[in-house]
Nucleic acid binder design. Structure first.
Lengths: 238, 238
DNA sequence: ACCTGAACACCGTTCAAGT
DNA sequence: ACCTGAACACCGTTCAAGT
């Protein structure tokens, strides 16, 4: 699986791909421009000639590469609910292939711009077909994008790099010894929650996927949108 | 507003507070353990004696501090929908006070554990009162937490630190010159979308809040949950 | 145009030593 | 117990110089 590059002259794509491979293999914590340079057998400064924006610019391109082709095309005969569901699934699959880029997505505007205009256009198309227009279209658009990125970036949040301090173990102990008096419901449902629910887990979603929660989440968002379609009046009570 | 500390001996709280102040002022990019040490007029290594887990451990505590008291208590006579709405709002207000910590929340398990067990217990209480039990309770719990963190962390994603490269300006130009042929809906709604919608904005949510989108988002989640309450049968079509 | 090479101003973290 | 001090192995980025 190791890519052998010889003397083929450097190019932006080559650098971005090397960076992504490196992140996939060792995580963001280990990532550095210099390391990328080393794997390409090039001086660090050569990178700067090819990619603008330095380290952050490179990371933004990495995100864009990892997330390309997430949005299936939307035609006038497609069902918007079904389409939304499929984008959510494909987006999750992309991040499951590259879990270590997850922290980048919410990290910077530059990076979440990596999710490209094609996706924007198609989400708008789907929502328009659902009946949303004008200001309301924009609001539902923001809702969908936030929901799209939300679950998965959180699910894939990485555990400590090498965990020399044994964080995972001591955290598990802390969770398992919470007093039932203070946390009755947490303790009552502990078997179901421990390591399988946000905040009370010690492994990342690429190791312990939270599948059922994701399904419920998608159901919730879609059902919510559907109920808003019914509400034709622009304004709602706060 | 500048805090003058004299010779009061170092303590974990003091360090965490100094770190949070520093992040609030200059952002995560500028943050460093050494800088924290400098503001406390202490050698960098002194920090390590007080806070375990090094830099990441410190950042986790910063998140915990920034997000404490987000969850109002939930009593048996409270309305679960209203309660969910208020947590969402309070969580957003906390991050509006400390927008620069936003990237940390999805960044690591250690950090999103900073949202403490009290919140877990209360969310469970609210969802139980809505009628969710057992496996279904866990799934809706994951849904709510993901939704809770999702919108706001994305909204507060920081723009490039100093933007020496003029990223914002060139990105705006790129957006404004997208071809209407390829992106008909994006271009048609550009005035409403530009800088006011995810992916096609160049300023962070602490400068240009996406309020209406947030309201719609909360409506969507709550309406979705409500519709799932109705569906008493555990299973749903995929 | 594309890359080398050296240099600058930083990092996080460990480990020994002081008080 | 709490902190200093020195040292190690790194960083990202700039700038001049080579070809």
């Amino acid at each position: 699986m190791k890519t052998h590059r010889k003397k083929i002259p450097l190019g932006t794509d080559m650098i971005v791909e090397a960076a992504l491979e490196l992140i996939d293999k060792s995580g963001l914590e280990k990532f550095s421009v210099r390391e990328v340079a080393r794997t390409l057998k090039v001086f660090p400064t050569a990178i700067y000639w090819h990619v603008s924006g330095g380290r952050n610019g490179l990371l933004a391109e990495v995100v864009a590469r990892a997330l390309r082709d997430v949005a299936p095309s939307f035609g006038p005969r497609d069902d918007w609910e079904q389409w939304i569901r499929s984008v959510f699934e494909r987006y999750r699959e992309s991040l499951q292939r590259h879990p270590n880029v997850a922290p980048l997505i919410g990290a910077q505007l530059v990076s979440n711009a990596g999710v490209n205009p094609v996706l924007v256009e198609r989400v708008l198309a789907a929502l328009e077909s659902a009946g949303f227009r004008g200001k309301r279209l924009v609001d539902t658009y923001n809702t969908v994008i936030a929901a799209l990125l939300g679950y998965v970036t959180l699910e894939m949040a990485p555990a400590p790099a090498d965990d020399a301090g044994g964080w995972a173990q001591s955290f598990e102990e802390k969770i398992r010894s919470l007093p039932a008096a203070e946390y009755p419901r947490l303790v009552a449902n502990l078997d179901r929650l421990a390591n399988r629910a946000f905040i009370v887990r010690w492994q990342s979603g690429n190791q312990v996927p939270l599948d059922d929660g994701f399904r419920m989440y998608v159901d919730t968002v879609v059902a919510g949108l559907r109920s808003l379609v019914a509400t034709r009046s622009g304004r709602r009570r706060t």
